[in-house]
């Protein structure tokens, strides 16, 4: 049965009713979630699976620090490490660490061939890209032996730069940076944009809501349904509703109208790419 995994953004969210938690490692995480140091991580004592995210492109100058972090994590009781940069895998192999690695190159985990190659290399889990269709997600699950994490609710990262784009702009227009949230707007959607020590990140401003799809995901033995709490005011409600659907499924008492109502309560009908394929070849007259 699928577990619900929460990318937390606040330490208080540890107590929410989910089976699994994802937390970023300070300085080495690229995705939008709470980041903790190794020492802070050690102090967490909860009866849930804890996955940590080392999800940034790693610069050569960071290899030593990364190695120390991985060695520390190997001695902590965590359920796994989500990684983007292959150096994480390489260091774990060289140091013979027993960490459960989850391939999590968020925009490139888009096909089962690659996932199966990683599986043969010992990486038995994958965080699926939010940029692909529901059919592609299910095909991946049905054609690979890996356990899969599927982003199903929330706002996910859509851009990473090593440049400090907000600071650069504010400097150019002679304004000071404020201690506030920044957004860029396109087509009436406001996309959160923020800087951390690694550069600039942009988050999809349109909340993905896949609650209507979870029955199909349960049917196809998806291992983890991932919810990101970033800027979600009613995260308790979101989790309650996902758990309600899960309970229905377990009780074999599926009521599609009720699921639809629960979904509507979450104030987003955005299905992301679940039913929409991206295009990459355009007609010549569209490509000026």
């Amino acid at each position: 049965m699928s577990k619900i995994s929460l990318m937390i953004n606040n330490i208080n969210e540890l107590k929410l009713d989910v089976e699994s938690i994802i937390i970023g490692i300070k300085k080495f995480n690229n995705l939008n979630m709470l980041e903790l140091t190794i020492d802070q991580l050690k102090k967490i004592n909860i009866d849930k699976e804890i996955f940590v995210s080392i999800n940034k492109p790693i610069h050569d100058s960071e290899i030593e620090e990364l190695t120390d972090i991985l060695l520390s994590l190997d001695n902590i009781n965590i359920s796994g490490v989500l990684f983007d940069d292959i150096s994480v895998y390489q260091i774990c192999k060289e140091k013979k660490l027993n960490l459960n690695l989850i391939w999590s190159n968020i925009h490139q985990t888009t096909n089962y061939n690659s996932i199966n190659v990683w599986n043969k290399l010992g990486v038995k889990s994958v965080f699926i890209s939010p940029d692909i269709t529901l059919k592609e997600i299910i095909d991946i699950k049905n054609n690979s032996k890996s356990s899969v994490f599927v982003p199903i609710y929330g706002m996910f990262d859509i851009f990473t730069s090593n440049r400090f784009l907000i600071s650069n702009y504010l400097k150019y227009i002679h304004e000071s940076k404020r201690n506030t949230k920044y957004y860029i707007e396109n087509n009436n959607i406001k996309y959160p944009i923020y800087e951390n020590e690694n550069g600039t990140h942009i988050i999809n401003g349109n909340v993905l809501n896949g609650l209507d799809e979870v029955i199909e995901l349960f049917d196809n033995n998806i291992d983890y349904l991932v919810i990101n709490s970033y800027m979600i005011d009613n995260i308790d409600k979101v989790i309650d509703n996902f758990n309600s659907v899960k309970k229905m499924y377990l009780n074999k008492n599926i009521d599609k109208d009720k699921i639809n109502k629960l979904s509507t309560e979450l104030n987003s009908s955005n299905k992301g790419f679940l039913y929409k394929e991206t295009i990459y070849k355009v007609k010549s007259d569209e490509n000026e």
């Binding site: 859509i158 506030t180 707007e185 991206t278």
Partner: peptide, 30 residues
Amino acid sequence: KCVLSNYMTNRDSNRGGCSQICRWDFDLYA
């Protein structure tokens, strides 16, 4: 690590369809 094109124009940057969103002008909000 950039899929702005996917999300703003439905053109897949990682499959050769990048619509160069990074060259657009935007309103910035605080």
